[in-house]
Simulated assay, not measured.
Amino acid sequence: ITHEKLRPRISQTAKGLWGVYGMLSLILCVLLWIGPLNFFDSICHAFSTMSTGGFSTRNNSIAYWDSNYVKIITTIFMFLGGVNFSLLYKICHGEGLKSLFRNDTFRAYLKIVSLTFVAFVIAIVANGQAHTVADVTIDPLFQIITTITSTGLTASNFESWGPFVLALLFLLMFFGACAGSTSGGAKIDRMLYLLKNTSNELYRSIHPNAIRSVRINSMIMSPETVNRVIAFLCIYVIIVAAGGIMLTAFGLPIVDSFFSVFSCVSNVGLGAGVTGYSGYGFEVLPDIAKWVLSVFMLIGRLELFTVLILFTPAFWSK
């Protein structure tokens, strides 16, 4: 849904984006090395953070170091990993922050993070989990960013914040961050397509002869693109529903089943309940459940159509 050509040749565009990615990874590695991490851990977590992969060299992930410095630095770079790299490229080449804040998707990204942060803080206070300043500042922001960017690093037991937080995490895992970033999920761009198209359809219900189009970043999107996005989101929901039902058949609680499928399809990696922070992780799942989730992770990473098209007769007839 985003194929922005930054340079005359696609190879030049690719090299430019790789340059931005490599520069951010190097800066993050140095910043982590300055802190409590050794050089090996710094390299591993720099690669894991910028790729929003979420792998850690420690069983407790970021929580192992119990360092607010590490959480803050990691949060900043996870956030950058969720931004369209084309925008970061433009900033690095002198276009300034104005181009960033003129982008509809980035503005939506900021709004989602800000509103969710307020909701998290209210939930944490309401559940009596606000013991330190970090409990209502660094920890919820870290959890929001690590979820929406599909990184999946953990620094606290978010399950103790209440079921409302879990419900919000479902939404964050579903939509993910910006298209053109390293994050998973359905992407905020598609959410904007859906919301604007829905608004247009509601308007046409009142004014049947009105002609309205979906505009993203002042550009009119073609009806074919809008239809493809809506189809993508419908298939996404169907796959999550099917996966959740399949896991319940293997004996998992219903909330844990759907959370695990959401997490895998969106490539987040967070667990809840038996697979969560206070549980034993995904290793407790039956082998057949691991196979199912592995397939869902592959489908989610390749963004549905790439995999599902293999099961259409028209693909093989050619």
Rank of each mutant, 00 (worst) to 15 (best):
K318H: 09
G251K: 10
A14T: 11
F79A: 10
R301T: 05
Y69P: 01
C29P: 07
T312F: 14
L17Q: 10
A63M: 08
G184P: 05
S67F: 14
A241M: 14
G244T: 06
V255Q: 09
V214R: 04
I309Q: 00
R301N: 11
Y193V: 13
C234H: 06
R212W: 00
L293F: 12
R228N: 14
S25H: 01
A134I: 02
K15N: 02
G96Q: 06
W291Y: 12
S278D: 09
F259W: 07
P163H: 11
A14I: 15
L247W: 05
L17T: 09
D256H: 07
S56C: 00
W65R: 02
A249H: 12
I145G: 05
G184I: 08
G276K: 08
L194Q: 03
D135K: 03
W291G: 03
G16L: 14
F106M: 09
N217F: 02
L195Y: 11
L194H: 02
F170C: 13
D139I: 15
F55C: 01
F106Y: 10
A123E: 10
S218V: 00
I230P: 01
F77T: 02
S156T: 15
F296W: 02
A123W: 11
N103H: 10
M297C: 05
V125N: 06
I62C: 05
G244K: 08
I299R: 09
D287G: 13
G276P: 04
N68G: 15
L172S: 05
A242H: 04
E224C: 03
A155R: 03
G281C: 08
I211P: 00
I206L: 12
I1E: 13
G35V: 07
W18E: 09
S51V: 02
H3Q: 15
I299F: 03
M23F: 15
F47Q: 01
D287H: 13
I145C: 08
T116W: 04
S156Q: 13
P223A: 06
S99N: 11
V229A: 12
T151G: 04
G152S: 04
G35R: 01
F305E: 04
Y21N: 03
F117Q: 01
S222E: 15
T105H: 10
Y69V: 01
L169W: 00
G54N: 05
I145E: 05
S317V: 13
I91N: 00
N127S: 14
Y89I: 11
E4M: 00
S11K: 13
L141F: 14
L87E: 07
T52P: 03
V255W: 10
L28C: 03
I309Y: 07
V295I: 15
F55Q: 02
D189R: 13
N157V: 05
V292T: 14
V307F: 07
N127L: 02
V274Q: 09
I43E: 06
N197W: 13
S42K: 03
V274R: 11
